[in-house]
């Protein structure tokens, strides 16, 4: 089926996320203005105006009442979803690279970049009440990250946090003690993205080392590997089928020719268990920076360096296709 093109961003898309019900699709881009769209028809519902730098990360809580964004303007902001108004703003020492609400949305986490003589740090904040004072409050927990910086993050309920790092490490943090519980290094390069499966027991990582990998959330055990020839920027797990989708491609700065063929900017579908590729979706003319499955599993979206978000609804043949085993 013909994809819906979401045109509204002026620069590369950095992250896209559906809300829990999947009726809304949030997107952030390097153009400072996150947008929210109706996922059904691609109509833009509104923008979150206020950032003065590249918006690197976004999240929306489970009730779709609050939206959070972290940006290169050294702020992490929380917005009211319904009105699009900023309700809280936290100034940070360096760019905010990752952010996420906890399962209950009573807390949130954000991490800052290692830059301007600032070390990478992880902050856990209380988000039960968000108002002007939020920016002045001390965080619940502040964890300095020695070593490699955090490049992606996941909450495990409200209890622990899993962070993916620039050097390919994955670390699990206990929030009661603020200590590291476990750490594995299965990737050789930066982990761009991590996403949960539907029940939150497994997560998929997307790495610059040309692979995406499936991990067990409890003991960070590597379950599966999906190999490509290009950096993988994002990966998502289907909520209804044993499928994963990978988005990525030649890094924009490395693309020397105009041919999209060399870049391999396709969304690539793999069987989650067999690790076999079974489909590709073309369309973007730059690398894909973020992919997300609709919570009903019947469509998925991709946001690319080309500034477009494409919402693809699967054809019936997708549901009819089965692996023999």
């Amino acid at each position: 089926m013909k994809p819906i093109m979401l045109q509204g961003h002026e620069r590369a898309i950095t992250q896209i996320k559906y809300n829990r019900e999947g009726d809304l699709l949030f997107s952030s881009s390097k153009d400072n203005k996150p947008n929210v769209w109706y996922s059904l028809n691609g109509e833009r519902l509104g923008s979150f105006n206020g950032h003065q730098g590249v918006v690197w990360c976004i999240d929306v809580d489970w009730t779709t009442s609050r939206f959070m964004s972290g940006a290169g303007d050294r702020t992490c902001r929380i917005w009211d979803c319904e009105t699009g108004k900023e309700i809280g703003c936290i100034n940070t020492a360096s760019s905010v690279r990752t952010c996420m609400f906890s399962y209950s949305a009573n807390m949130a986490v954000y991490t800052t970049d290692k830059a301007m003589k600032q070390d990478c740090e992880m902050f856990i904040i209380d988000t039960r009440v968000v108002d002007e004072s939020t920016g002045q409050q001390d965080p619940i927990l502040r964890i300095p990250i020695k070593g490699s910086r955090v490049s992606s993050i996941l909450w495990d309920l409200d209890d622990s946090i899993i962070s993916g790092h620039e050097n390919g490490e994955i670390t699990q943090w206990d929030l009661k003690t603020g200590r590291q519980i476990n750490s594995v290094k299965e990737h050789d390069n930066l982990i761009n993205d991590m996403q949960w499966n539907k029940d939150g027991t497994m997560f998929i990582t997307a790495s610059k080392d040309h692979t995406a990998k499936l991990f067990d959330a409890k003991d960070l055990l590597l379950l599966k590997s999906y190999k490509t020839e290009r950096p993988v920027n994002s990966a998502a797990i289907s909520p209804i089928a044993e499928h994963v989708v990978l988005g990525g491609g030649q890094e924009a700065m490395d693309v020397t020719t105009t041919s999209t063929r060399v870049g391999k900017f396709d969304s690539r579908f793999f069987h989650m268990v067999f690790e076999e590729e079974f489909g590709r979706v073309k369309g973007h003319f730059g690398p894909i920076n973020s992919v997300a499955f609709h919570p009903d599993g019947k469509s998925y979206s991709s946001g690319g360096e080309d500034g477009y978000v494409r919402v693809h609804t699967f054809d019936s043949s997708y549901f009819e296709y089965n692996f023999d085993y």
């Binding site: 829990r20 019900e21 999947g22 489970w62 399962y103 209950s104 009573n106 309920l157 409200d158 029940d199 909520p239 919570p295 009903d296």
Partner: peptide, 14 residues
């Protein structure tokens, strides 16, 4: 535990 965290709203399935 999940129900407790989300005000007893079951969000396990859509």
């Amino acid at each position: 535990r999940r129900l407790a965290l989300r005000n007893n709203v079951d969000t396990d399935e859509l």
